[in-house]
């Protein structure tokens, strides 16, 4: 009887009861869930951001020398591309377990796995970007006395930046999404909440975490667009 009364109360006056994410109601969108579990959500989001940023930066640090190597030695290029594409083909749920014997059940496993995926995209876009630099520009720079290093850093990289940034955006957005799979080894950021939401049939948790993932991806993308605008002021003049 009391149960019935309670249920009725929850339905009638949800303001008084611990309502919209309770077992009986289990709503998808629930503000109270966000308020009550704020700390948990923030922790998961911070872990998500951390894993994503470290993975993309690591991917970039490996991709840069690889791309330069591929450019210097054209014979290496096809094998570098073949190996990275091969890694890319392996599903994330299989790649993480394959790393476990070496890195254990840790955040490192997820970070390395995601960095390997980002690497594939970044190597390609770095190569495409450097290739997009017009030969005349390169020749005039050499004629002006630029050495190999300053040619790369002062002429080629800035001109390659739009293509490289396009690749970086793609890599970052997909890394944000893939981080969720890290919940397999318990380091999945918001993916941990999604997994818990599925296991316990907790709709508010599942929905909030999913929406936050997409929001994170959009925010990262917007930040990178902003960064590109700041780094390439000359392209704005052309467009205007």
């Amino acid at each position: 009887m009391t149960l019935l009364v309670q249920a009725a109360q929850i339905r009638l006056s949800s303001a008084d009861e611990p309502s919209c994410y309770s077992r009986q109601v289990n709503e998808w969108v629930c503000g109270e869930y966000v308020v009550d579990r704020w700390d948990e959500i923030v922790d998961a989001t911070v872990q998500h951001i951390g894993i994503t940023v470290v993975a993309v930066v690591l991917g970039l640090l490996i991709a840069f020398p690889l791309a330069l190597l591929a450019r210097r030695l054209p014979r290496m290029e096809s094998s570098i591309l073949a190996v990275t594409t091969g890694i890319y083909t392996v599903p994330s749920l299989a790649l993480f377990p394959l790393l476990v014997p070496f890195t254990g059940l840790s955040a490192t496993t997820v970070v390395i796995g995601l960095a390997l995926y980002a690497l594939t995209i970044l190597v390609r876009s770095l190569l495409e970007g450097l290739r997009s630099v017009p030969d005349e520009v390169r020749e005039s720079a050499v004629g002006l006395g630029y050495g190999r290093r300053s040619l790369l850093m002062k002429v080629e990289m800035p001109l390659a930046l739009p293509v490289v940034m396009a690749g970086l955006r793609v890599a970052t957005v997909s890394t944000v999404a893939l981080t969720t799979v890290g919940s397999l080894v318990a380091y999945g950021g918001l993916g941990n909440l999604i997994k818990d939401g599925v296991l316990t049939n907790f709709r508010a948790e599942l929905f909030t975490a999913s929406v936050l993932c997409v929001v994170l991806a959009v925010v990262f993308d917007a930040l990178l667009v902003l960064m590109q605008r700041v780094l390439t002021p000359w392209t704005r003049g052309v467009r205007a």
Partner: peptide, 9 residues
């Protein structure tokens, strides 16, 4: 941008 895992869930 949409995680496959989230959509499946």
């Amino acid at each position: 941008a949409v995680p496959t895992f989230a959509l499946l869930a």
